[in-house]
Simulated scan of single mutants.
Amino acid sequence: MSSTHRRRAPGEMLDAPRFFIDRIDSLEDHASEIEACHAVGIDTEFVRERTFFPQPGLLQFSDGNAVWLIDPVALGEVGEFVSRLAGWMRNPGRVKILHSVGEDFEVIERVCGALPEPLFDTQIAAAMLGMPLQLKYETLAEERLGVTFPGGLGRNNWLRRPLPDAWMAYAAHDVIGLPELMARLAEGLDRAGRLGWHTEDCARLVERARRPVDPLTRIRGADRLDDDALARLDRMARWRDEEARRRDLPRTFIAADPVLLEIARRNPRDPSGLEGIDKLKPGAARRFGPTLIECCRTPTPDFVRPPELQPLTREDRDAVTDLQKTVRTRAEELDVDPALLASKRELTRIVRGERPDWLDGWRGDLFGAELEP
Rank of each mutant, 00 (worst) to 15 (best):
Ala331His: 01
Arg345Glu: 15
Ala331Glu: 00
Leu340His: 12
Ala342Lys: 01
Leu340Val: 11
Arg330Lys: 15
Leu347Asn: 09
Asp335Cys: 11
Arg352Asn: 13
Leu334Gln: 12
Lys344Pro: 06
Leu323Val: 03
Arg345Gln: 15
Glu333Thr: 10
Glu346Arg: 04
Thr326His: 11
Asp335Gly: 11
Arg345Asn: 14
Val327His: 02
Leu340Cys: 09
Lys325Gln: 09
Thr348Val: 06
Lys325Thr: 07
Glu346Asp: 08
Ala342His: 04
Val351Phe: 05
Asp322Ile: 00
Val327Thr: 03
Arg349Gln: 07
Ala342Pro: 00
Thr326Ser: 11
Arg345Ser: 15
Leu323His: 10
Val327Asp: 01
Val327Asn: 00
Thr329Leu: 15
Glu333Gln: 10
Leu341Phe: 06
Ala342Ile: 01
Ser343Phe: 04
Leu340Glu: 13
Val336Met: 14
Leu323Tyr: 09
Glu346Ala: 11
Thr326Asp: 05
Lys325Ser: 07
Val336Glu: 14
Glu333Pro: 02
Asp322Pro: 00
Ala342Leu: 07
Asp337Val: 06
Ile350Trp: 08
Lys325Trp: 03
Asp322Ala: 08
Arg345Ala: 15
Leu347Lys: 04
Arg352His: 15
Leu323Ile: 00
Arg328Trp: 10
Ile350Ser: 08
Thr329Phe: 13
Ala342Trp: 03
Val336Ala: 14
Asp335Arg: 13
Arg349Asn: 10
Val327Tyr: 07
Glu332Gly: 06
Ala331Val: 07
Pro338Glu: 00
Glu332Ser: 11
Asp335Leu: 13
Arg328Asn: 12
Glu346Cys: 04
Val351Gln: 10
Val336Trp: 14
Val336Ser: 14
Arg349His: 08
Thr326Leu: 14
Arg349Trp: 01
Leu323Ala: 11
Ala342Ser: 03
Gln324Cys: 04
Ala331Pro: 02
Asp335Tyr: 14
Val327Lys: 04
Asp335Gln: 14
Ala331Arg: 03
Leu341Asp: 09
Leu341Val: 07
Ala331Ser: 05
Gln324Pro: 03
Ser343Thr: 13
Gln324Asp: 00
Ala339Trp: 06
Lys325Tyr: 02
Lys325Arg: 12
Val327Arg: 03
Leu347Thr: 04
Leu341Ser: 03
Gln324Arg: 12
Ala342Gly: 02
Glu332Ala: 15
Ala342Cys: 01
Ile350Leu: 06
Arg352Ser: 13
Arg349Cys: 02
Leu347Ala: 03
Arg330Ile: 07
Ile350Asn: 09
Ser343Ala: 08
Arg352Ile: 13
Lys344Asp: 12
Lys344Met: 09
Glu333Cys: 06
Ala331Tyr: 02
Ile350Gly: 07
Asp337Tyr: 00
Thr329Trp: 12
Leu347Pro: 05
Gly353Gln: 07
Glu332Tyr: 06
Arg349Gly: 01
Leu323Met: 11
Gly353His: 07
Arg328His: 12
Glu333Trp: 02
Arg330Gln: 07
Lys344Gln: 13
Val327Leu: 00
Thr329Met: 13
Ala342Arg: 03
Thr329Ser: 15
Leu323Glu: 03
Leu323Arg: 13
Gly353Cys: 08
Arg345Ile: 08
Asp337Thr: 04
Val336Thr: 13
Leu340Lys: 10
Ala339Ile: 10
Lys325Cys: 01
Val351Pro: 04
Val351Tyr: 04
Arg328Leu: 14
Arg328Thr: 14
Glu333Asp: 11
Lys325Asp: 05
Val336Tyr: 14
